[in-house]
Amino acid sequence: MGRSLDDLGDTLSWWDLYVMLRWHRHDSAVSRLKFPETWWRTIEVDLAALQVDALRGGNWQRGGGQGQKPDPILGPWPADQEALPAEPAKPKMTATEIRDELAKRRALRESRAG
C-alpha cells in the first residue's frame, strides 16, 4: 500500500513518517536525494568491485609487476555516509504550521474530488 503525505494524521502517523525518513531503503527516493552520487552503492556492488580489483591485482602480479599497479574500481565510502547524526534536525515549521498546511491540502483535495 502506497503512502502519501496527504494521509499524514489519518492513516500515516508522525512516527511512521519519521521512521520512513530516518531508516529509508538504500534505493528509495530519500536516499537518492540525500546521497545523489552514491545511493546505488550497496554491499553487493562493493563485493563485486573488490573481486574485480583482486583479479586485476593478481594478473598484474603474475605479469611480473610491469607497469603501473591497477587502481581500485571504487574508492572508500564517502565520509558523509559513514556517520549518521545522533539526533534529527529541528523542524523548520512548527506543529501548528504543519497542521494548517495539511488542512489546506485536504480541503484542496476534497474540492477537486467533487
Rank of each mutant, 00 (worst) to 15 (best):
S13T: 04
S13P: 11
L47I: 06
G9Q: 01
L74M: 10
A86R: 04
E97L: 03
A107L: 13
P70S: 03
T11K: 15
R112L: 14
D100V: 04
D10S: 14
I98S: 01
L50V: 02
G2K: 06
D53G: 06
D100G: 10
L84A: 15
Y18N: 13
L12Y: 11
P85E: 06
R56H: 09
V52G: 03
K104I: 03
L55I: 12
Q61A: 15
A107K: 06
H26D: 08
E82F: 07
R99Y: 04
L50F: 00
L5Q: 05
K34C: 08
L50A: 12
E87Y: 14
R109V: 11
S31I: 01
E110K: 11
G75R: 02
Q68P: 13
W40A: 08
V45Y: 09
A54K: 05
W14G: 14
R41M: 09
G9T: 02
E44S: 12
W15V: 04
L12W: 09
G114L: 10
D100T: 13
T11F: 13
G75T: 03
R99W: 07
G67D: 01
Q61G: 10
E37Q: 14
D10V: 07
L33E: 10
A49K: 02
V45K: 12
L5R: 08
D71M: 13
L84N: 06
W15Y: 09
R99T: 09
G2A: 06
G57R: 14
L47Y: 11
L74P: 00
W14P: 07
V30H: 02
P76H: 01
A49H: 02
I43V: 11
L17E: 04
R41Q: 08
W23L: 11
L50N: 09
S31C: 10
L5S: 10
G57S: 15
L74W: 05
D10W: 12
G67Q: 05
E87Q: 13
P78A: 11
L21G: 07
D7V: 01
P70Y: 03
R41T: 02
A113L: 11
W15L: 14
M1I: 14
R3F: 08
T94I: 01
A79F: 04
M20S: 15
E82G: 12
D80P: 04
W23R: 15
E37T: 02
R56D: 15
T11N: 15
G2P: 15
L102E: 00
E82T: 11
L8Q: 07
G9S: 03
R99I: 02
N59I: 11
R109T: 08
L8D: 05
D6A: 13
L108E: 11
Q61D: 07
E37V: 00
R109G: 01
A48F: 04
K69R: 15
M1P: 13
L50I: 01
L74Y: 10
D80A: 06
R32A: 08
L47G: 12
K104F: 05
P36T: 00
A83V: 15
K90I: 13
